[in-house]
């Protein structure tokens, strides 16, 4: 499991990417991240929820309280247009960054 430091910057990116696929609630996002990364990325709730709310305050996500399975109240997050723009910009940045790191590591 990668250390949190790597994750901090990328968490927003991962959340936005996950929500792009379909609107989801916090638990669903967490599960999906775990599944897609094949259990290698586990985001703690203590980081996930502040990040979700931060993204919403920043206008990249919107949320709605809905009645979910078992008639429970769940907050479902949806990506906004600004969020999509941010995602594509961040994705490009991340790719460049990853490429650069990769090159440096190979240059050895």
């Amino acid at each position: 499991m990668p250390k949190t430091e790597y994750l901090q910057g990328a968490l927003d990116l991962l959340i936005l990417q996950t929500v792009t696929l379909s609107p989801n609630h916090g638990w669903g996002i967490q599960q999906r991240l775990r599944q897609i990364s094949r259990e290698s990325i586990a985001v703690s709730q203590g980081s996930l929820y502040p990040a979700l709310h931060r993204l919403e305050v920043a206008g990249f996500l919107t949320s709605e309280m809905t009645a979910s399975e078992n008639n429970r109240k769940a907050r479902v997050y949806t990506i906004t247009v600004a969020g999509r723009k941010r995602l594509s910009a961040e994705t490009d940045d991340w790719r460049d960054f990853a490429l650069a790191i990769g090159r440096i590591l190979q240059a050895e």
Partner: peptide
């Protein structure tokens, strides 16, 4: 949207707090 969210949190602090409680309770469940 962000302004709306912020305004809502300003005006409906208690509701926001309850919603956060609900959200996290849902996660635990």
């Amino acid at each position: 949207m962000a302004v709306m969210t912020w305004l809502r949190s300003l005006i409906q602090r208690r509701r926001v707090t309850r919603e956060i409680d609900d959200e996290l309770a849902f996660h635990l469940d």
